[in-house]
Design a protein around this nucleic acid. Structure first.
Length: 483
RNA sequence: GGCGCGGUCGCCAAGUGGUAAGGCAAAGGUCUGCAAAACCUUUAACGGCGGUUCGAUUCCGCCCCGCGCCUCCA
């Protein structure tokens, strides 16, 4: 299916095909995103998914759509309760550190804050209310103080993941939690506490919410019974999203989500990322190894979201150099002097690129196509500049186009060192104050004017040792940038 | 086994029923005091076997290979 003019098509897991986006509320897209479980630092794979939904929402906004996005933070689950108990701290205190780290991480990657970032533990009452609704409809049963959803009461179960649950016999599998269930397929809405575990005292008894109910409760609270888009990693389609559908649609009698968007996983050097293989990276691990936030953002967004991304050292190098090319281009546009006038051919060329960029993203967020549109433009405009066919009035227009692209990509601003500093990661090179950098450049210019190239090269080397690269341009000006 | 995602130049990755974008890397050149940046040129790819078709990388079938999910998991 090809997108019609101005149409945005997206692959819907529910139908397993691409469909045009048609928001329920005209002009506004409502999105629910499964956020992190804060039992530890988020890993690089998580951020692939988060960067995908970030690109998605940024593209919607570029299209003039309003975005209302809710992301949950799962700050209660078995691992959190276990780890907090082991550390002898309240769960809120235990998770706080990782919530903060997550916020810092998404900031470093230029992932926009969703309109609502909500914590599960702030919505226990909403979950209890939803469970009561299901209980009132006779869709649940209790066992040892826990409440389960009876899947046999929801005939559509499996419609998202296309998993045939009829083969999952009662008792065929042992639930990891060792709770008593009537049917292996049933899942917990509410879990009774084991001795010493954290619990809430509620109308449905003591305990804590199941994982799935929190997303249903929070999604519907903020976005309504039926929401436009629900995003998450492919692994969540079953059982998490399937269970969300069962609970939500049973409670409301209405479709829960119109479009399910699932991003494929990241694999590392061709293998699944796992702790046992020792290829498990957090963002901070990569930053500590010297990789920049913008490098990681580029790599993670450059591969379309429905394609598995093989994360390699080589890929990082390629990503870094690609970002450099884009930044060099904008720096040249801003620094170089061009002859007066405006070349209408350039204007047309920019419009073509804008059209291609938009068409790429409108085609199921095909970031590879969108990037190709930009790189095509970069090459053509660079060539025009070299041929002196690029004129003064073309520059602001071209910069504006690049900034428009960057409202989605968020790669151009060179704030990598600043972001790393915010994370407490020291720069690898000694930092020079800008005034000193500029002073040294001035001194080097003087040396060059007097053809003292030995001195001029010394200064260039000195700056290079501090992580500063110089570029002498044709018109005599000197640009500098961080490596 | 069921359900998915893939296999396109050295690497990453678009795309199309009429022999194929873009990025990175490589080689040569232009520019430069030298670099850097940029540009130009060059190199080079559709897993295999059948089928449909005038014609398939693109559609269909089978096979091979990689990865994922099938109640921890983005």
């Amino acid at each position: 299916m090809a997108a019609k003019l101005n149409e945005i098509i997206l692959h819907n897991t529910l139908s397993n095909r691409v469909e045009p986006l048609a928001p329920i509320h005209p002009g506004e897209v409502r999105i629910y995103t499964c956020g992190p479980t804060v039992y530890s630092f988020a890993h690089i794979g998580n951020f692939r998914t988060f960067i995908f939904q970030d690109v998605l929402r940024r593209f919607f906004r570029l299209r003039g759509l309003r975005v209302l996005q809710v992301m949950n933070i799962t700050d209660v689950d078995d691992r959190i309760i276990h780890n907090a108990a082991a550390a002898s701290v309240p769960i809120r205190e235990y998770t706080e550190k990782y919530v903060r780290a997550f916020l810092e991480d998404i900031d470093a990657l230029h992932i926009e804050m969703p309109e609502e970032l909500v914590r599960a533990t702030d919505h226990i009452d909403d979950m209890v209310t939803l469970i009561e609704k299901l209980q009132a409809k006779g869709l649940t049963y209790s066992s040892d103080g826990s409440v389960y959803f009876r899947i046999s009461k929801f005939p559509d179960y499996g419609k998202l993941s296309k998993i045939d649950v009829s083969g999952m016999q009662a008792g065929a599998r042992v639930d990891v939690d060792q709770y008593e269930k009537d049917d292996a397929r049933d899942f917990a809405l509410w879990k009774s506490p084991k001795p010493g575990e954290h619990f809430w005292e509620t109308r449905i008894g003591m305990g804590r919410p199941g994982w799935h109910i929190e997303c249903s409760a929070m999604a519907m609270k903020y976005l309504g019974d039926t929401i436009d888009i629900h995003t998450g990693g492919v692994d969540l389609a079953f059982p998490h999203h399937e269970n969300e559908i069962a609970q939500s649609e049973s409670a409301t009698g209405r479709p829960f989500v119109r479009m399910w968007l699932h991003s494929e996983h990241l694999i590392i050097n061709g293998q699944k990322m796992s702790k046992s293989l020792g290829n498990f990276y957090t963002l901070r691990d990569l930053f500590a190894k010297g990789y920049k936030p913008s490098t990681i953002r580029f790599l993670l967004l450059s591969v379309p979201y429905r394609r598995q991304l093989n994360f390699t050292e080589d890929g990082l190098v390629q990503a870094k150099n690609s970002v450099e090319r884009l930044r060099n281009f904008v720096a040249r546009l801003k620094a170089e002097q061009f002859a007066a006038g405006s070349n209408p051919e350039i204007e047309k060329r920019i419009e073509k690129a804008e059209g291609e960029f938009d068409a790429g993203l409108a085609d199921d967020v095909n970031t590879a196509r969108a990037l190709a549109a930009i790189f095509d433009l970069v090459r053509d405009v660079n060539a025009a500049m070299d041929r002196r066919e690029f004129l003064q009035q073309n520059a602001p227009r071209t910069v504006a186009a690049m900034e428009k692209f960057d409202s989605v990509l968020a790669l151009l601003v060179d704030d990598d060192d600043e972001k790393l500093r915010l994370l407490g990661i020291a720069p690898r090179k000694p930092q020079l104050p800008v005034s000193q950098i500029e002073g040294l450049i001035e001194e080097r210019n003087a040396a060059r004017r007097s053809r003292d190239f030995k001195r001029s090269d010394e200064i260039r080397q000195q700056l290079s040792d501090s992580g500063i690269l110089l570029e002498d341009s044709k018109d005599g000006s000197v640009r500098w940038k961080y490596k």
